[in-house]
Design a protein around this nucleic acid. Sequence first.
RNA 1: GGGCGUGUAGCAUAGCUGGAUAAUGCGUUGGCCUCCUAAGCCGAAGAUCCCGGGUUCAAAUCCUGGCACGUCCGCCA
Length: 596
Amino acid sequence: MIHMKMLKTVIEPLIEAALSEVGINNDHWKSMLAPSRELEQGDLSLPCFPFAKQMGQAPPQIAEAIATAMPPHEAIGEVNAVAGYLNIKASPAWLAKSILHSPSTSGHPFGECQPTGRKILIEHTSANPNGPFHVGRARNAILGDSLVRLHRLFGNEVRAEYYVDDMGKQVGVLAWALANLSSDEVEATLAGREPLNPKWAGKADHQRVRWYQAAQVIRQERADKEEIEQEIGRMVHASEHGDQQVLDDFQAAYQPVLDGMLTTLARLGIGFDTFTKESMFVTNGDVGRLMEQFRSFDIHGTADNGAEFLDLGARGLKGKTEFFFRRGDGSSLYATRDIAYHMWKWQQCDDLINVLGEDHKLQAKQVGMTLTELQQKVPEVMFYSFIKLPEGKMSTRKGNVVFMDDLLEEASEQAAAVVGALRPDYERDQVKEIADAAGKSAVRFNIIKVSPEKGFTFRWEEALAFEGGSAPFIMYSHVRACSILRRCEKEGVDVAEEMAKSDVEIPDEMSSGMIGLLRSLAVHNDVLAKAVNDRRPHLFANQLLHLATCFNAFYRDCMIVVDGEVNTFNLQVSEVARRLMRTGMEGLGIVPIEHM
RNA sequence: GGGCGUGUAGCAUAGCUGGAUAAUGCGUUGGCCUCCUAAGCCGAAGAUCCCGGGUUCAAAUCCUGGCACGUCCGCCA
């Protein structure tokens, strides 16, 4: 629920006064004051039904009485009582003045961040480096990166971190395959499958994943599979005990794959500040010390073969209650290292956020409970549900996947076709630049605009939609705002000078387009705050869509330059909207280009 | 079997710390470019808010019992 905070702050004392004059004295009403359902009626509304009993009057009467008792204020454009609701509409002139003149009271209407001083560490993606991104895995990266960007826009100091799984079975299999299988063997093993797309033949993530896939088959089928398993097991075991040679071999195997994956993410505008290797916590002794510490816990237990666990059932965990942190052979488990990793992360930030697939819910719960047991803070987690295809679950084995690299190519191509048709006079390079921006933005936005916990079915036609509720729609509104600026320059208007005027006359009568835009601008930063604090980027995505829609209506109703004359008020509002659109787009990873 | 999540017009979604006539896009359909980019704007049609029960002045929203789908329940990562 998004309140128009700048209005709420001002009118709460006024309502308080009106209520006490009418004879209502309780504080419950503050939580009842809500954004109006009917935008025509107002910005904030107070349902008066709960007062009926106390007052012995019908709600419409009470609403009427409160409306009459409301003290006048310049912020209030209109007060009305309808069907038991007290509706308060902000005065457009006051909204305009607040937005234009006092950046400090309205957050940062010009899109400039005010540092909060809070340090946030966001870990996202952290995919195993064993193959290229498909759109399923990419939901994590897109969601995570949007959260990173939104936090930065909000003014937090953010570190985006990738946790590299550089040990364990998956990397072990990859390393074994690269060392033991020839190219011919790999291709023969994978003969029945989708071949490597020649376009990606030079990209290590696409290339090396074939070794990995072939190894998965061979481990099941080849006559010497037991020896293979032993060999892999030996390497994995060594890696878990911090054997540097094995870890180095592993890195040589996965690093090119990881680099390829990062290239894909970079195309989406996704990057990281730090990479932390899982093995670090084994080699530096943290994991060993942690496991020793667990032994002193009263919920510690030991299985028949010497494996150790914590009985989280004793702390209220339902279902699977034993949380194993050490194998019978004494080596650590993924979750154990994850706990060491979290303790390390907590030393470097005020807030910790992890972006995880819904399949990690139990594991995250176990880690969280164990951290509590260690008297550590529990990280915030953003869970998302998986992306599937219309044909069903994504599966590399069945060839039922859409690679991110392919999606981006396709998006760019389709966008180029649209731009080419719409702007026949553009140069080829310009078309390509616009198409790349529109393509990647559309792909990102398509995923961010829906709430993470909702199951998501990938459809080409939706991912590549360039109208309606898409990124290009927002980009287009922004382009219009940029176009206004260019028009001003062409007319010889000194925009900086126009913007600096602080005594612009604010008209009494405004068009619906202007009023709508002012209202959207007024809640913009409230939505950003909510999206950041609740970890729900889609709220901000919808706000940006709303802002763009409102801008389009404003664009229709409010000319900025007429007959060479500039309307300063309209220009100033347009510029606030432009900057907010621009920073908002950056906050979601939409590329804010100036021509389309 | 147990835990967690999801179920809203033909389709995809928003709304879910209870409040008015359930919002948006696609699709369907009717209009708008001598005027700052029509990737746009304005209008119309289209909803048993999965089903049953309960709480409440008021339920898409909260509780409860079903159903469907997703996901987890490894000494894997």
